[in-house]
Design a protein around this nucleic acid. Structure first.
Lengths: 212, 212
DNA sequence: TAGATTGTTAATCGATTAACAATC
DNA sequence: TAGATTGTTAATCGATTAACAATC
């Protein structure tokens, strides 16, 4: 298999490039784009962009750059599963609901097909087109809806237990908003988004920069 | 000035350690803790923890480890401004509202004191104890409330303009949820949280791991 | 062709890891 | 003391950057 281990950061940047191209393509509509133009939009170096794009196997043309349409297609072939992937969200609090709204229709190949919570008053409803279930129903729903990706927006103390359920049901990718380090077996990829940590970091550097 | 340039990642981990200690301290209540115990909770190595803690200038004791209470205090002295810092949020959409709720009362030294939007129907209200203003009022409110940190939850096309306003008003730290690379002058720290990118990354690796 | 770009290799940089000395 | 831990230095690792050859 080619490109057996591509850097986590490279995948992230490819996702960013594609979105910028889609946005740019819709408005400006230029047919070709240079690495330095993508770099300017994404806030990275042109060499970085070229190196990342080599990973997807799409070659640019010297002095003409990259064809926008083909490039978007190639990144899509590389990043997406053609038939799409279904996502389950666990934890229907304020953050969970915001994320349901945020991702609704944003990426055609990634759909949040079901949401789960342990509180009885939150289940058997529909939020932004997404059906809500009890956590106990996850195995059945995951199998029926073919859920391969999970988003955890539960409180910290419930996250580990939820993660274990997800893994047991065949989920290999987890986006974790709970502020705990999940203990997961090998073969499961977890991406953590810790908003409290991010805000404290920003506050620290703001304070430090203000002193100078 | 000692420790002139501490790694961005170190600051983030220190924030994580503190929260874990506060959580742990409240429930378990042990007076001392070893580096490997913190490491286990945070998902890093013990050597990493020791190196990070040296940055805050708090020394542990061989064979006894770190005093939990003193350690939390030392990290606080290092990370926080004693009188606290005020935060402004711009963009009162679903994500903005979720973040207002999420940070409400979570960190005593960091308070979101005002929210801003351009839509008339969203201003002059109070959401979770936070007053909402028109974006044009930002300079006046920021000066009055001493806002030094900004959270951007606007759509992508408004983010750069908003960021420039923040910087003009003396904000030195920005937490950016909009999926664009903000062009900022030196002396301003920006932390990006790109949820779409994170989900696409997770989906990619889930797909890749499922193939193996 | 000349010029500007792309693809590729070597050098640099920074953070992490591992090994060791110091300490209670 | 012996043992287990902490603080410190050197080695490793990986990603990024810079330099260069290839190409339209």
């Amino acid at each position: 298999m080619q490109n057996a281990n591509v850097s986590d950061k490279t995948i992230g940047r490819l996702s960013t490039y594609r979105r910028l191209l889609l946005y740019r393509f819709g408005t400006a509509g230029q047919s070709h784009i240079y690495s330095y133009q993508i770099a300017g939009l994404a806030g990275v170096t042109a060499a970085q962009v070229r190196r990342d794009l080599m990973v997807v196997g799409y070659s640019g043309s010297p002095n003409k750059g990259y064809r926008v349409e083909d490039l978007v297609g190639s990144i899509g072939e590389f990043l997406d599963r053609p038939e799409g992937q279904n996502v389950g969200l666990i934890g229907i609090g304020n953050l969970g609901r915001a994320i349901l709204t945020y991702f609704s229709g944003r990426r055609p190949k990634l759909t949040i097909v079901a949401a789960f919570d342990s509180a009885p008053d939150k289940i058997n409803r529909t939020i932004h087109g997404c059906r809500c279930y009890a956590v106990e129903e996850f195995p059945a729903v995951a199998a029926r809806e073919n859920i391969t990706v999970g988003i955890i927006t539960t409180p910290a103390d419930a996250a580990q237990r939820v993660a274990e359920t997800l893994v047991e049901c065949g989920v290999r990718g987890i986006l974790n908003f709970a502020p705990v380090a999940l203990k997961l077996p090998p073969g499961v990829h977890c991406e953590d988004i810790d908003m409290t940590m991010a805000l404290e970091k920003v506050a620290y550097f703001a304070r430090k920069l203000a002193r100078d």
